[in-house]
Nucleic acid binder design. Structure first.
Length: 419
RNA sequence: GGAGGGGUAGUCAAGAGGUCUAAGACAACGGUUUGCUAAACCGUCGAUGGGUUCAGAGCUCAUCCGCGGGUUCAAAUCCCGCUCCCUCCGCCA
């Protein structure tokens, strides 16, 4: 949620920057509604002040045994007018809220403008693996080694649900534990949150109302299946006020994530690339505005370390304005290379949402004793999601004899050195 | 799923239609005193929105007592719905 005051102060400038994300954005309608709102507030508050004074006078009369029936009658009239204006005000407020809830965050000045392809590669680690034999894709490897079983997963749940079996299941568990422990030892407080969340939580994270079709919804209980621990952790301090010295506050969560992914499949996205359920380690931070961009950079470094320790080649990219999630001001992705498809795929997305989610969740901090509370900045970053990571390991670590080399840091947990 | 009890500002807590403009305490902050610490004493001390304003200072108005409705001239207080917490019963890994 953007700050309406900010729109009022610089409507042209803000609109210009929002248009770099979505050229159809117009602020005129909301500013008109805002003016109406202010003028209604002005008149209704004057009436309320009048009513308050009158009601006190009634109390005084009754105590003194005087007749107040005339005053009461006139106050009833005032109350009726208040009720009318209040309901009009409520109508306008809900229009404003609706409009505001659909607006995206203002992009940071360092974000490249334009379409998805305008992203900038910042740096990379390692090199694309070279093979002197024909590489297999991870789906073929998974079937041959009996470590991925999509056929039976489809029977149990449906298409695009993964099932890991045998050493595949052990490798998945090892990845989860490795990443979770790594970040925990790095100063992030470990959390295993609920995997279902209510609508308010998804509103705060900005999944709702705009992206309701992307998440699974249990109608009977009005609960949503977790699409990303970001949606959960953004709510961890809803309505709270931090002391400044408590920030930054860092969390790492393990969750299964569920996404409907309706209509988003392409030919390139078979196997583990895009599925309805996956495991993810998520980092989340609450920081002051002064800290937040340094914390974003550190978030990326912390996610990169995972891939470095696993010995996987990756590149780091800065997303362009039109590729940002609604709540994000700036997003840096980490992408791994899949040699069978000769393509890079995102395994981590690190974003600074500035105060966009904090405003929705009313999460603030006090910048010093006696000072007014300010909204915190929230940051999230995958650290990282497992499916594409596993695909990268299976495809990049295949050896001429068909076996798969398991990264050293995982070998003890998997119980094998090769698959 | 059923029965009962509860939710008041950072924390504890009084308050049960009309100076509630929410008491009081603790914590916090500023000061006085002080060899240091502590204590004592004095003072300040919730949030949001509007108006005034260069200003988030000051002044002023409105709103907020879990959330949403309702009754009333007037609601923390009465009524209805919801939600969360606690106790007990039922069911259950």
């Amino acid at each position: 949620m953007l700050d309406i005051h900010r729109l009022r102060e610089d409507p042209v400038g803000i609109e210009q920057r929002l248009k770099t994300r979505d050229s159809s954005i117009e602020l005129e309608g909301i500013l008109t509604l805002d003016q109406e709102r202010l003028s209604l507030i002005h008149s209704v508050e004057q009436l309320k002040a009048e009513r308050n004074r009158g009601a006190q006078e009634v109390g005084r009369c009754r105590k003194a045994g005087e007749d107040a029936s005339e005053l009461i009658a006139s106050l009833a009239e005032v109350s009726n007018r208040i009720a009318e204006i209040d309901s009009e005000l409520k109508r306008i407020l809900s229009s404003i809220d609706h409009f505001m809830s659909l607006l995206p965050n203002v992009p940071h000045p360092t974000v490249p403008i334009g379409v998805k392809g305008n992203k900038v590669t910042l740096h990379s680690f390692g090199k694309q693996s070279q093979f002197d034999f024909k590489v297999k894709d991870h789906l073929t490897i998974g079937e041959e080694k009996e470590i991925l079983d999509f056929r039976h997963a489809a029977m149990i749940a449906g298409t695009r649900f993964p099932m890991y079996t045998g050493l595949g299941a052990r490798l998945e568990m090892a990845l989860i534990q490795f990443m979770f422990a790594h970040h925990a030892e790095n100063g992030y407080t470990p959390v295993i949150p609920p995997f279902l969340a209510n609508s308010e939580s998804l509103y705060v994270s900005s999944q709702l109302p705009k992206f309701a079709d992307d998440v699974y919804h249990c109608e009977k209980d009005n609960l949503y299946l977790n699409p990303s621990a970001e949606s959960l952790l953004a709510n961890l301090h809803r309505g709270e006020i931090f002391d400044e010295d408590e920030l930054p506050r860092k969390y790492v969560a393990y969750t299964a994530c569920f996404r409907r992914e309706a209509g988003t499949y392409g030919r390139d996205e078979r196997g583990l690339i895009r599925i309805h359920q996956f495991n993810k380690i998520e980092m989340f931070k609450f920081a002051t505005p002064e800290q937040s961009y340094a914390e974003l950079d550190q978030l990326v470094v912390d996610a990169e370390e995972i891939l470095r320790e696993l010995g996987i080649h990756y590149r780091v990219t800065l997303l362009a304005t039109q590729d940002l999630a609604q709540q994000s001001s700036k997003t840096i992705d980490i992408e791994v290379y899949l040699p069978a498809q000769k393509r890079y795929y995102e395994v981590s997305s690190c974003s600074n949402c500035e105060d966009f989610q904090a405003r929705r969740g009313n999460t603030r901090y006090r910048p010093g004793a006696g000072k007014k509370p300010r909204y915190v900045h929230t940051l999230n970053g995958s650290g990282v999601a497992t499916p594409r990571l596993m695909a990268a390991i299976l495809e990049n670590n295949q050896m001429p004899d068909g076996r798969i080399h398991i990264p050293e840091v995982l070998q003890e947990m998997v119980g094998e050195e090769v698959i």
